[in-house]
Amino acid sequence: MLITCPYCGPRDVIEFTYQGDGNRERPDPASQNFEAWNAYVYDRLNPAGDHNEIWQHSGGCRAHLKVVRNTLTHEISSVAFARGDHGSAARHKAEDKA
């Protein structure tokens, strides 16, 4: 399986660490909503088909990536930085282009 890191290009899956379900939302740190905390820590979407996942390019630039991957075929349809606009790597890219 190859994942195309937006920073490093296509790399073998051996360079990446899976960080699981990317749909989870971490509650506000001060939140006392235990249901929300429990759901965040323990409950996962586990679809047969496209799945939003977090991967870390641990054997490369170490950025975390939001990956949409099909769990039936392992096909990857999109990869983006998990940091979104905050990502320094993404900023670098943009500056390179400019």
Binding site: G20, D21, A39, D43, R44, N46, P47, A48, T71
Partner: peptide, 19 residues
């Protein structure tokens, strides 16, 4: 391994399970 899929049919979207 199909627990997630079958439970989804029952309307349970998330489980403490990954396949």
């Amino acid at each position: 391994g199909s627990t997630g899929r079958v439970m989804q049919m029952a309307g349970i979207e998330t489980m403490p399970i990954e396949s």
